[in-house]
């Protein structure tokens, strides 16, 4: 027993980062309160849990997708206080006191959100993996109000990658909801 304790002590002492890291390398989980799609959730989360992982792994809201996990693909796009962000690049603990909207919260009592309907009508996807992020991003873009032309849409949707290449139909679907005339 003594030798086991000795080894444990040695490992602690020899840790290259001792003195920098807290001795307890697993900080206690904190209660994190998140408001998602109008419902309040209390979760016990470690501070390094991203908003994306909180949604998918702890709340089982798997509509929000993990693509690259580095803010390069946009599959994880959600709306926070009406603004689109990459949920992979923020911590859940940092998004308390905000209103989070995911793809699961878009449809209302009267059915699908107009963008969801337009994506179906325009066949704006192939595999569908990027679609929740595309739709949440388009909702955010329309809220922002800076897109006036087809080129604006393409530029302001560039944070959402579609590996199937469904871009023309995605732009068509968004234009229809924005009532932009693509032939204008």
């Amino acid at each position: 027993m003594v030798s086991i304790l000795g080894i444990l002590t040695m490992q602690t002492t020899l840790s290259p980062e001792s003195g920098v890291r807290p001795k307890n390398t697993l900080p206690e989980k904190n209660t994190v309160t998140l408001t998602i799609n109008g419902s309040v959730h209390q979760l016990e989360l470690a501070p390094w849990t991203t908003l994306l992982d909180a949604l998918r792994e702890y709340l089982h809201l798997t509509g929000t997708k993990k693509g690259c996990d580095h803010g390069q693909c946009g599959a994880c796009t959600v709306l926070v206080d009406g603004k689109r962000i990459n949920s992979c690049l923020t911590l859940a603990v940092m998004k308390q006191d905000t209103e989070i909207l995911t793809i699961e919260g878009l449809a209302g009592e009267n059915g699908l959100h107009p963008l969801q309907t337009a994506f179906i009508e325009h066949d704006a996807y192939q595999c569908g993996y990027c679609t929740p992020g595309q739709i949440c991003s388009a909702v955010g873009m329309i809220n922002e109000g800076h897109a006036k032309t087809t080129d604006d849409i393409r530029e302001l949707m560039s944070g959402n990658i579609c590996r199937c290449g469904a871009y023309p139909h995605i732009v068509d679907a968004i234009e229809e909801v924005m009532q932009l005339d693509s032939n204008a």
Partner: peptide, 26 residues
């Protein structure tokens, strides 16, 4: 020691996921 400020986090969290940045505290 080893603490870092975080604001938007868009670059810092990316670097933390790559283990390029390893802050002990945010």
């Amino acid at each position: 020691e080893g603490a870092k400020f975080i604001a938007g986090g868009t670059n810092l969290l990316d670097l933390m996921k790559e283990n390029v940045e390893r802050p002990a505290r945010l």
